[in-house]
Design a protein around this nucleic acid. Sequence first.
DNA 1: CTGAAAGCGCTTACAG
DNA 2: CTGAAAGCGCTTACAG
Lengths: 361, 361
Amino acid sequence: VSMKTVSRVLNAEPNVVPALRERVMASVAALGYRPNLHARSLARARSSILGLLYYASSAAFVMGLQRGATARCRALGYHLVVEQLDDGGDHVAEQLRHMLTALRPDGLILAPPVCDNTEVIGLLAQAGVPCVLISPGGDSPALGRVSMDDARAAQEMTASLIALGHRRIGYIHGHPAQAAAPRRLAGYRQALAEHGLPADPALVAQGDFTFRTGLDGCDQLLDLADPPTAVFAANDDMAMGAVVAAQRRGWQVPGDLSVAGFDDSPLASLVWPQLSTVRQPVAEMAEAAVDMLVSRSARPPAGGAATGGEAAGASHATAASLTSAASGGPGVPPMAPPTTHRVLDHALVVRASTAGPRAAG
Amino acid sequence: VSMKTVSRVLNAEPNVVPALRERVMASVAALGYRPNLHARSLARARSSILGLLYYASSAAFVMGLQRGATARCRALGYHLVVEQLDDGGDHVAEQLRHMLTALRPDGLILAPPVCDNTEVIGLLAQAGVPCVLISPGGDSPALGRVSMDDARAAQEMTASLIALGHRRIGYIHGHPAQAAAPRRLAGYRQALAEHGLPADPALVAQGDFTFRTGLDGCDQLLDLADPPTAVFAANDDMAMGAVVAAQRRGWQVPGDLSVAGFDDSPLASLVWPQLSTVRQPVAEMAEAAVDMLVSRSARPPAGGAATGGEAAGASHATAASLTSAASGGPGVPPMAPPTTHRVLDHALVVRASTAGPRAAG
DNA sequence: CTGAAAGCGCTTACAG
DNA sequence: CTGAAAGCGCTTACAG
């Protein structure tokens, strides 16, 4: 019945005899005791709070990130604070500074396109907060990054369209300021080149990731003297617009026109026909980001086991350090090792909006 | 150059001579000093943290709430922690208890349909956390509520369709488990009754708020021997499905069929044709919720000014208490007074998907 | 392996 | 109107 020992048990520190540990655990369970996060934050240097920064755009994407982040935070005893930034706002700096100094988050997750805002990045780097960028454009030196291979995914989707027999494949480009747009366009072009298909500039319509520009872009492509038999849009919102454009003029999808999207947004499997698309592992990206942040902010483990530099079992490895290194924490799912850049797997999701081209008349 | 005085200045407490106050303010500005939230939380009873509880469903709605909540929190020096609950999950109780005991939020905002989960409500009430429910179904005694008048809004939209000349108006019903659905249906029926129109059960299709059921529901209505000339869907997702259903069979919207939605979701003004709908003040509801929570958790002001029971200027009203009551805080927008139930205004948004019926053949 | 001391950065009563 | 004291609930070094 001590008080310091309770702290040790709760933090899974070594040097507590099993029997005592048991007794404490039992009491904790019985009383439903939980440490007060704020007292703990004050005594430690860290707060067990992570922040998610985003703009109003791309609601579905942000919600996907939140799902992954809150789930992983919960498993690790962390909490997620969200902050919606005003895109053009000039007091963004003020907002951020306030959040950082008042709340002292252990790390920040930056959703696109916030992650490409150099002012924000600069401010955060200067403040010294660990950050992980989700699918950023440029490669930022000291910051963590999680992304998927947009170019490769677009290349694969285009190739699958080619494999179905399509030869004229239209493309609806995304907003050029969003980092993913040029990468996806490059993948489309690469697939064409790999299969010896001409890169007709007329087959690429400019969009900005909204439903409306998908509709307009598809109209533009279908108005061509030699229209495409398939249209690949850089995201699902535009793909849905493309479907409507086709249906509006009486074309069947996929009978008269195949349409493919990108993202696998929640709506993609609810519209008619269900959209063939690329599954982007949004929630998983947020989970990976949380892992990276938590492993950074965790105090360096005793002994040299996790630093990886020294050979295992070297002179300074005590029994205690080995124990703690082997246990890997109290029943919590194992954390991914800290990395500066993780690329997660995507997948092609073939549903009902794509098929082979109808025999030409 | 004291230290206690700084605390007084930062908290806008009375009893500091203007000159001193100025001097402290200047230093604070110069050093960029901000109080550590965790230290403050520990010393006070409250954390300046609010929580938002939601399910995975209705991404756009939750994002709207977050927008309003984060903005208002920022203005009031609060922070928003989000928690996505597993709908069917049986460790929801565990999740909540952990959040409450560890983080000690000053209050919780419950998005629909979490706000109608009796288990959650019971747990929270028992824990004694102030809660505000967004558009809940039943009327929960001690909890705050913010909503809009769904029935009246639906009645107005239906009436506007009638005013355009429609006599057979189809309705696509929402998910009956969501509290808003029966209220909107009631409004539709009321408008019909008020204008002496028959309530044909065949004109009401069952949906569940998803795009897909809007499409199917509209198909069902248009297959009727005597199909409607207008369809009112209980939300925008279903209305978009209805538009596609019409277009798929070559009907023009609004030429051959008027379609109205509900919510004014971000997509509503991006689809083609742009949707006539009801604007639901989602962000404003979250702002109101934050105000209610903050005014609750604020410590009762000195003097009796804000309690409203005693006459102003009564015996105990000192100069100090009058000052603090009149100032209303340091440059922060005025807070709405604490209320147990606030109903916010909606608005009809007439866009391009509704028009008068084409002269019948 | 275990505990008594001091401190994290603020605030609440209490004296002047 | 202003400050010196004690404490919020935990944890970090330090002694046993």
